[in-house]
Design a protein around this nucleic acid. Structure first.
Lengths: 203, 203
DNA sequence: GCTTGTATTAACTGTTACGGTCAATAGGGA
DNA sequence: TCCCTATTGACCGTAACAGTTAATACAAGC
């Protein structure tokens, strides 16, 4: 990978990265064409290959970049610095919305990349999202205040159900090609408030 | 489309159809290769083209077939013959699980096909799932007994949230290539029971 | 065994897509 | 003007793909 890429105006870097996230999130690795990424970002294919020596390198850069930025965003929003589960959830999801403003397709890319089966890619991915999310899940379970929940529900099921719903919601947004961060933020907040009301113990 | 296809042993028909559902659910129309469908179903590409004159015809057959079979399964399970929302939900999802035993990738295909953008396909799809599901949603809302729900929650949000969760759950199953109807059925029932407990009014 | 009809395929065709390269150009600063 | 870097159009070899065709495998009837 060519250092000159990082000397580009940030806006242009972002445009290229985003185009790549988009194309790789819509196709499997093998069927995602470099030419489409070039077109989408408004540069020539030759230039794209000038910055990233080949497809694999670009993909792996996107991957580590996604992990890193996600981690950073989650930290910035002080996601784990509370013991209120729904506050954690809100911070976590709002941090992802903020990321979405800059990189609309990063979320979809991450969702897909984890299950990428192309051997040459699968083997090269050492650090994976699952480790990250499993780890943070554990921290969440340690940190959160159990007492606030209704006593008659199974918290693990609740936790799983909420994340299914978030993924299902985002899937729909992506499939209908409708990534408007402001709107998503609003709707996510509605959902979180809904969950909070439903799962919290009456006082 | 060639009538001889229907004279094939049912098992073989099923194998071909399923391979097609699989490949079309994993790739966009344009990038789903007929050769892969042939390989997956254990017949030659030439024979596949013998039964379905071309790719488009096969795709459209799958589409109408999916709608028809879904409708039939939902009817068989008497989904709308109750006023208990969670019973409806259970019947609806169990009917889809039963379909899944025969056609594991039909659900994923449907999920994707609705958002297919290839013009030659998009234009040819007259009857769409959205009409069907919107219609049945209306019936559901008419039929179901509102009184059973907690009074402090928004039913539309609940309805949306549940369907997000189901899609998110299925997405995960498909992505991790883990379609085991028995297991899915069990887990779906756990989720429904969970929802029922959470959303139903205490007596 | 031979004949006939059908199920099935290997091999082929023409075209397009793709990853990657390179020689050439454009553009800006000295 | 020269020089240097950013950028690209055109190109290459290969592979993938939709669809065709001529040939084979196979079974049924004689």
């Amino acid at each position: 990978m060519n250092d000159k890429f990082f000397k580009l105006p940030l806006e242009k870097q972002r445009r290229i990265i985003n185009a790549a996230y988009k194309v790789f999130s819509e196709n499997s690795y093998k069927k995602a064409p470099m030419s489409e990424i070039a077109d989408e970002s408004g540069i020539s294919k030759a230039l794209l290959f000038h910055y990233f020596t080949n497809k694999k390198e670009l993909y792996l850069y996107l991957w580590t970049n996604a992990i890193e930025m996600t981690r950073k965003a989650v930290a910035e929003y002080k996601t784990l610095e509370t013991d209120d589960f729904f506050e954690m959830l809100k911070r976590s999801l709002l941090s992802k919305c903020s990321l979405m403003r800059e990189y609309p397709h990063l979320y979809a890319f991450s969702l897909r990349a984890y299950y990428e089966t192309t051997p040459e890619i699968q083997n090269s991915i050492q650090e994976n999202f699952n480790d990250v999310s499993k780890a943070s899940e554990m921290i969440v379970f340690e940190k959160m205040d159990i007492l606030k929940f209704r006593k008659d529900i199974d918290i693990k099921t609740m936790y799983a159900e909420i994340f299914y719903a978030v993924d299902g919601y985002m899937l729909k947004k992506y499939r209908s090609n409708c990534i408007i961060p402001d709107e998503i933020e609003k709707e996510i907040i509605v959902l979180i408030d809904f969950w909070k009301k439903v799962y919290t113990q009456e006082v």
